[in-house]
Design a protein around this nucleic acid. Structure first.
Lengths: 191, 191
DNA sequence: ATTTCATGCAAGTACATACTTGCATGGAAA
DNA sequence: TTTCCATGCAAGTATGTACTTGCATGAAAT
């Protein structure tokens, strides 16, 4: 049995993702959580506080997924990149609407978005970059490449694929797109 | 001397970009256009109609930029890709807030966003893809690559770079990121 | 000189939304 | 059994926002 807090947060995630932050109403969130609107305000001081808790909750979740799934396979660069890309793509695809909405809110909620998108993925990002740097020392990646920027270029492709998905899903499935991105990246970093 | 219509649309572009679609108020748009709020409603039936006109106006602008700037240089793949990337990056970077906001609105205004992001860039996109296909026939690009998806991967990197910019600009300037993307892409498509 | 027209301004309407208060209820803990 | 405590419900407040109406004004067209 889920706690009322959790039900409200789950509902808020759905409604924020669907209607946007200022488009989401406390009434609709409460309705979606099957809870009286008053109960919502008994659990969360106000809409802003609810938003904060939603972000904190989601950040923890993302961080957990990133940290639980080991992606680095020693001596197998291709495999490592594929794993990393697949985990990263998986997380954002599962939270497609939510992710899209909050990138749209970047200017209006910079701090929260930083926690949501940067802090939660930081350990995994650093681990991936460290792996690339090691591979670069081992001559598996060309020396003239800035692997930090390159890593962000990879996640950027995957992110854009999700954000644009409603515009492109008639053209190709997202999985195909991810494959091409990984393919491009791997060929692109070769010496 | 700019027409009142134009002043209102310019203001709406700014305010929509800054405050989001449902966050933007007609009062604030009017204020920003230095026009009485009543005047705004005399020129545009309602907020939705103003939104439509804003999108139409911006689409035309983007389309114009894409069509005016010739990027294809025969027999110089690198140059062509660089040109295309630089034009594409230029347009979205100049409209950073607006672009971010409306990608966040993709689910809620699919049709308008399609016009804004897909239709306006369609001719340029097709031209670029045709160029890549020709280069692929000329053995400048590896045969196993799906150039359509690859082209979208390139624009995806550039787009994500802009959308994430408030989160990354402390790390590297956008221009550096664009260079790395083009570099990765060019190496990635080589036979 | 007269008319036309775009605009400003003051005021107001209707509605939605965030948030509050007071009371009733039912189930779990004491 | 009694006491809590979380919740529901009805009602209400305060504010913001889209949008309207009526009138005044000044500049340009006739």
């Amino acid at each position: 049995m889920k706690s009322t807090d959790d039900r409200i947060i789950e509902a808020a995630i759905r409604v924020f993702g669907r209607d946007g932050v200022s488009g989401a109403t406390t009434r609709e969130i409460a309705r979606s959580a099957r809870v009286n609107e008053v109960t919502l305000f008994r659990h969360f001081k106000n809409k802003d506080e609810l938003l904060r808790q939603v972000i904190i909750q989601c950040s923890k979740r993302y961080e957990h997924v990133f940290n639980e799934a080991p992606f680095a396979t020693p001596d197998d660069l291709r495999h490592t990149v594929q794993n990393f890309a697949s985990i990263y793509a998986g997380v954002i695809l599962e939270n497609e609407d939510f992710v899209r909405t909050f990138f749209g809110e970047l200017n209006r909620h910079l701090k929260l978005c930083q926690r949501l998108f940067v802090d939660s993925a930081k350990p995994a990002r650093l681990k991936f970059i460290a792996y690339l740097q090691a591979a670069q020392k081992g001559r598996l990646i060309r020396r003239d490449l800035d692997v930090v920027t390159a890593a962000d270029a990879l996640t950027g492709m995957l992110l854009a694929g999700v954000i644009r998905r409603p515009l492109t899903k008639a053209l190709y499935p997202y999985e195909t797109f991810v494959e091409t991105c990984v393919d491009l990246f791997l060929k692109g970093i070769e010496p």
